[in-house]
Amino acid sequence: MTFSICVREPYTDDEGDEQTRFGVAVTTRLPAVGTLCPFASEHGAVATQSLVNVELGRKGIEYLEDGLAVEDALEALLNADEEAEQRQLHGVGAEGAFTYSGEECRGWYGHTEGENYTVAGNLLTGESVVEATAETYEDGWETARDAENPDPLVKRLVDALGAGHAEGGDKREDLEVQSAAVVVASTEERERDHYYNDLRVDATRSPVKDLRETYRLAVEGEEAALEKYAEELDE
Rank of each mutant, 00 (worst) to 15 (best):
T2Y: 10
F3H: 13
F3L: 09
F3C: 09
S4Y: 08
I5H: 05
I5E: 04
C6L: 05
C6D: 12
V7D: 10
R8L: 06
P10D: 13
T12L: 02
D13K: 01
D14Y: 11
G16Y: 00
D17I: 02
E18L: 11
E18M: 06
E18V: 08
Q19H: 06
F22M: 04
G23K: 04
T28S: 14
G34S: 12
T35Q: 15
L36P: 07
C37V: 14
H43V: 00
V46Q: 02
Q49T: 06
L51R: 15
L51K: 14
L51V: 09
V52E: 01
V52A: 04
L56Q: 08
R58D: 15
G60S: 01
I61R: 02
E62G: 08
E65T: 05
E65D: 11
G67M: 03
E71P: 04
E71W: 05
A73C: 05
L74D: 04
A76E: 14
N79L: 11
N79C: 13
E82V: 12
A84D: 15
R87N: 11
R87S: 07
Q88D: 14
L89D: 10
G91S: 02
V92G: 05
E95L: 03
E95D: 13
F98I: 00
F98K: 02
T99R: 09
T99C: 14
S101V: 15
G102C: 13
E104R: 14
G107Q: 15
H111K: 10
G114R: 06
T118H: 06
A120M: 08
A120Q: 14
G121W: 02
N122P: 08
N122H: 06
N122S: 10
L124G: 07
T125R: 10
E127F: 05
S128D: 13
V129C: 03
A132N: 01
A132S: 04
Y137C: 01
E138N: 04
E138L: 06
D139C: 01
E142S: 09
E142T: 07
A144Y: 03
D146V: 05
E148L: 05
D151K: 13
P152A: 06
K155E: 14
R156C: 06
L157K: 05
A160R: 00
G162F: 03
A163I: 00
H165W: 12
G168F: 07
G168W: 06
R172E: 13
R172A: 10
E173L: 14
Q178M: 15
S179Y: 05
A180K: 04
V182R: 02
V184R: 03
S186I: 00
S186T: 09
S186H: 02
E188C: 06
E189A: 10
E191W: 10
R192K: 13
N197E: 15
D198K: 13
L199W: 00
R200P: 08
D202S: 12
A203Q: 10
R205S: 14
R205L: 12
P207R: 07
V208A: 07
R212H: 13
E213P: 00
Y215F: 08
A218Q: 01
A218Y: 00
A218V: 01
E222I: 00
A230E: 11
E231M: 10
E231N: 06
E235N: 10
E235S: 07
